[in-house]
């Protein structure tokens, strides 16, 4: 039985290695994305919140004209683990105190996202169209933290017409929806080439990107263009290079796809410790119970 188990473990390992790598690159001839160092990777990794905030600026100024974030509301930005989560002493409104960005602790509590001044200011930049129940007319009002992120197009047809027939995908879970995750999206955003390699057939109206399946994509080299035009000036003084903007916007999109990561990892650590202790105790109990029994 021992030899059988050893042989099986070896086969499993040999087969699992290729089986777990997605079949995608076998079928498509897309280039494999390079691994990047991310703040959120590993069992202890957390979001670099400054990067998430910069990434939000990139999304807002560049991507949001074409891509929506359907699954998110403005309030999410100020919730626990969000980039604009803020803390203040208890009853800060009555005591006339100001919240500061950061995580709860040291006598400071999380500010309700609905009252969060950063979130309120961000939401107020947008307009929501509603039907006035009294007149039946469309009316607009400034967005509130509880509103969903405003979608760039009223419907898919308009979205397609604006992008040469291609519909820009919603970005709420884009990082989870691609093999390679954050590494892929980063490689995609920084991988555009002015010229395809020699011999590759040109597709009119599309741009060449070796990381994209099929090589030709309807999106332009947005970050390259933005870098040249100096579209983004970061408030914290970070240089807005193409690579920096890509890193930041991908960190933001990772947060958007997985906003509960911090809770998940911290509860996970507690559960793992609990289970390890439980396992050790049960092993001791097992040894104790079976002592003296031949088996």
């Amino acid at each position: 039985m021992k030899t059988i188990l050893r042989a099986l473990a070896l086969t499993a390992a040999l087969l699992a290695a290729p089986a777990l790598t997605p079949a995608a690159h076998a079928a498509g001839e897309a280039k494999h994305p390079e691994k990047q160092a991310w703040s959120f990777q590993g069992p202890f990794g957390q979001y670099d919140q400054a990067a998430v905030r910069r990434g939000f600026v990139v999304y807002k100024q560049i991507c949001s004209s074409c891509h929506g974030l359907k699954m998110l509301s403005y309030r999410n930005l100020g919730e626990a683990g969000g980039p604009f989560q803020a803390v203040a002493p208890k009853n800060w409104q009555l005591r006339g105190e100001e919240p500061v960005l950061g995580a709860p602790g040291h006598g400071k509590e999380l500010v309700n996202a609905i009252d969060n001044p950063w979130v309120k200011a961000i939401a107020a930049n947008y307009e929501v169209t509603e039907v006035d129940p009294n007149t039946g007319e469309d009316v607009t009002r400034p967005a509130r933290p509880s509103d969903k992120f405003i979608y760039p197009y009223p419907n898919e047809g308009i979205g397609r017409a604006a992008n040469g027939g291609a519909y820009p995908p919603d970005l709420s879970v884009i990082v989870k929806a691609r093999h390679g995750g954050a590494d892929y999206v980063y490689a995609f955003l920084t991988g555009f080439k002015d010229e395809p390699p020699k011999g590759v057939e040109v597709v009119e109206g599309k741009n060449y990107n070796p990381y994209f399946r099929g090589g030709w994509v309807a999106m332009a080299n947005q970050l390259g263009i933005a870098e040249e035009a100096g579209v983004i000036t970061y408030e914290d003084g970070t240089q807005a290079t193409k690579q920096q903007m890509a890193k930041d916007v991908v960190t933001f999109l990772q947060w958007a796809a997985d906003p509960k990561m911090a809770q998940r990892k911290s509860l996970g650590m507690q559960v793992m410790i609990y289970l390890l202790v439980l396992t050790a105790l049960l092993y001791a109990a097992y040894k104790q119970v079976w002592r003296g029994q031949k088996h």
Binding site: L275, L278, T279, L282, Y283, A285, Y286, W290
Partner: peptide, 8 residues
Amino acid sequence: VKDLFALA
């Protein structure tokens, strides 16, 4: 006890 240990 053996089942519980394995389950853990």
